[in-house]
Design a protein around this nucleic acid. Sequence first.
RNA 1: GUGGGUGUAGCUCAGCUGGCAGAGCACUGGGUUGUGAUCCCAGGUGUCGCGGGUUCGAGCCCCGUCACUCACCCCA
Length: 420
Amino acid sequence: MSSFQAPKGTYDILPADAATVLAVREAIAAPLRRSGYGYIETPVFEDVNLFSRGVGESTDIVSKEMFTLTKRGSEELALRPEGTASVLRAALQANLHRTGNLPVKLWYSGSQYRYERPQKGRYRQFWQVGAEAIGAEDPALDAELIILADDAYRSLGLRNFRILLNSLGDKQCRPVYRAALQDFLSGLDLDADTVRRAELNPLRVLDRQARVGAGATGRRADAGRLPVRGLQGLPRAGPRAAHGGRVSFEDDTKLVRGLDYYTRTTFEFVHDGLGAQSAVGGGGRYDGLSEMIGGPSLPSVGWALGVDRTVLALEAEGVVLTAPGATDVFAVPLGEEARRVLFGAVTGLRREGIRADFAYGGKGLKAAMKAADRSGARFALVAGERDLAEGLVQLKDLTNGDQTPVALDALVATLKEKLK
RNA sequence: GUGGGUGUAGCUCAGCUGGCAGAGCACUGGGUUGUGAUCCCAGGUGUCGCGGGUUCGAGCCCCGUCACUCACCCCA
C-alpha cells in the first residue's frame, strides 16, 4: 500500500464497479440523446460569484460547502457544486439562446464538489448527469424532463423511487408568501438554526427540517401547523396536466430545494436505499436565474440526477446490471517461438474486433492457464512447438474443457463463428 | 462544525476477567516436465492504525492522536 490514499470524501471507481457506473451514466443519457438534447461540457471550476449569485448566498451550498481556489492570493474560483449555473453561463456566453431555436436543450455529465462531512450517499466529489431546457415557459417541458428521468430510472430496472412535486411560486406571489411565512415563524419558539434560516430563506424552514419547541431538543415541526398552502393556485398543475398521467407524482408541499434559483415547479426523485439521504435526483424551473447572472429573461427548467446515489439505489433494490466479460480469448504460449506467433495472433484477433488478451510475464503453463481462467475468457488459445510445426493452435473452451486443434490461418473465422 | 461505531493477514472477520498470533477465502509452489476451474500436500500470510502510560507481562486496561464509517445538518 502506498502512503497516500484518496482524499476524504472521495473514492476510486475500480474495474469491478466501473461497468455499473458507466451503465448508469449511459442509461440516463440515452433518453436525452433521443429527445433533442445536445451534449455540453463546462469547466470544473468557475468564478466563485457565478455560484454565490446563481445558487444563492444564503444556501448551505454556497455559505459553507464550496471548495474555493485561490488565484494569485485572492479567492476567485470555486469547484462547481452543481451544474446548472455553469451550463447557463456557457449558453449565454456562446449566445446559444440567440443563434438557435428556443428552448436550447442541453445535457451534461460530470463531477461536482461540495465540502461536506462524508457519509453514505454523500461525498465531496460526486457525479451528476443533468439536463436543461433553456428559454421557454411551456409546462410540457417540465413534463418532458420528468418523463425522461423516469424513463432513465426504469430502464435501469429501478422501481422503488417516488417523485415529489411542489411549486415554489413566482416573482409575484413568492415575496408575499415569504413575508407571511416569516411573520408566522417569528411567532414560534424555534431553535437557533431555524431562526437564522427563517431570516435568510424562510421557505427552507418548510423542508421538514424545522424544529418547533425548545431549541435542539424540540420536536420536528408538524407540517399541518405551517401555512404551506400559501402558494396554491400556481402552475404546479402545469406539468401534471401536460404529462398525461404517464408517471405518478406525490404532492409534497414541504419540498423546498436548497438552491435559491428555483421557481414554480420543483421536483425531487427520492429513494429509501441511500442511508440517511433520500434524493437520487431533483430539479425544477429557474425562470429568474439568467437575469441573476446578467443575462436576459430566459425561463428554464432542468434537473440533475446523482450517478453515485443511483448506483446505491440499484444495490438497495438488488438490481445487478449484467456486465459482459472483458475478454473472449486468452492466449497461452509454450516457449519463445510460440510467444511470437501467439502475440501476433492476439493482435490480429483484436483488429478483427475479438477481445483478446495474452499471458504476459513469462508464466509457466499452469499459471498461464489460471490467468486465462481468471480473465473470464470463453476460450484459451494454447500453442507450443508441436502445434506450430503443423500450423495449428489448440482452442480450449474453458466452460467445458473441450479442446480442438484449429489451423492458425483459420483462427479468426473459427472464433467469429464460435463467439456469435 | 457536533455526536456514535470501528481499526488484527491481500479480503471478510474471530480473539473470553490481561498470559506464546488465529479461521475461511485469496495467494505461491508441488502432486501432473503441454492445460485452468475441482481434489490432495506444503508454505510467506502480521510494525495487532500510530504515540505514550499502567503492569512481571498489553491485540485486550488508561490517555492522546490519526484514519475509516454511520448519523446530525444539508443535498445528488
